[in-house]
């Protein structure tokens, strides 16, 4: 099998004079052989999304939100008061919806998370361990839009309650690797106008903002933990 595979990869050019072969194979040591470039690792490649449990619950009508589409701006009508909702059940489900990219799931998940964080207060802190996996999965999709939304949600999460920032510190190992990967993803367009800056869609800038927010609200251990996962990050508080 292995031999057959390698012979398939050998291709002749110019009437059999030049041969293209994979690197580190026996053929690559022959004369008149052109060694192929290594394949792409796909560090920035977008991953295919799977159907989320948020979508399942939404379509089943399990969320206490009115499923209406009117012209009344970007608001969700809640059927029950947010104070009476079980945060341990609903908040992780809405966070799971951050992986969605299509309307209406994407809108309801984003706006639902926003409302729950804005009005949750100290009830959010005890739910944070359950939010880590949805955040990690959303970031790992490497989808531009999903990353932007998740970073904004992270920024909101750390200011939503007094101890939320500190409660996130033990989970930096799960969240920050993707931020380290995309930290330098910025546009270099000379003196042209990057409209993504105005719309807060520039991933490099958003990551910098997020890391600064994590450090500011994460207590005294935050910086060293961030630095461990994102070595190029420089403190915005200590200097």
């Amino acid at each position: 099998m292995e031999v057959a595979k390698r012979t398939q990869n050998l291709t002749s050019k110019r009437g059999g004079k030049e041969i293209v072969a994979e690197a580190f194979t026996i053929q690559s040591q022959m004369k008149n052989v052109k060694v192929q470039n290594p394949p792409k690792a796909g560090a920035f490649m977008e991953q295919p999304g799977k159907p989320t449990s948020f979508r399942k619950f939404y379509e089943r009508g399990d969320f206490p939100i009115a499923l209406e589409h009117d012209t009344k701006g970007n608001k969700i009508a809640w059927k029950i008061e947010i104070d009476k909702l079980d945060y341990h059940h609903y908040l992780p489900l809405f966070f799971d919806g951050l992986k969605e990219t299509t309307h209406p799931y994407e809108f309801f998940a984003r706006q639902g998370v926003h409302d729950l964080l804005e009005h949750g207060g100290n009830r959010i802190v005890s739910v944070i361990p359950q939010l880590i996996m949805p955040i990690k999965e959303a970031l790992n999709l490497r989808n531009h839009k999903v990353i932007c939304t998740t970073l904004k949600v992270l920024q909101h999460l750390v200011v939503s309650a007094d101890l939320a920032g500190e409660a996130l510190v033990p989970y930096y190992r799960q969240i920050l690797p993707m931020l380290n990967t995309f930290k330098n993803q910025n546009l270099n367009i000379g003196d042209g106008i990057d409209y993504g800056q105005q719309k807060r869609e520039n991933i490099g800038d958003l990551i910098q903002e997020t890391l600064e927010a994590l450090e500011k609200h994460g207590g005294e251990d935050a910086f060293i933990n961030i630095k461990y996962m994102v070595p190029t990050y420089e403190s915005s508080v200590l200097n």
Binding site: A66, W78, K79, D115
Partner: peptide, 10 residues
């Protein structure tokens, strides 16, 4: 709202 649903504001 008049239909009984709630709107939350920032």
């Amino acid at each position: 709202r008049k239909d009984g649903n709630y709107y939350y504001y920032n």
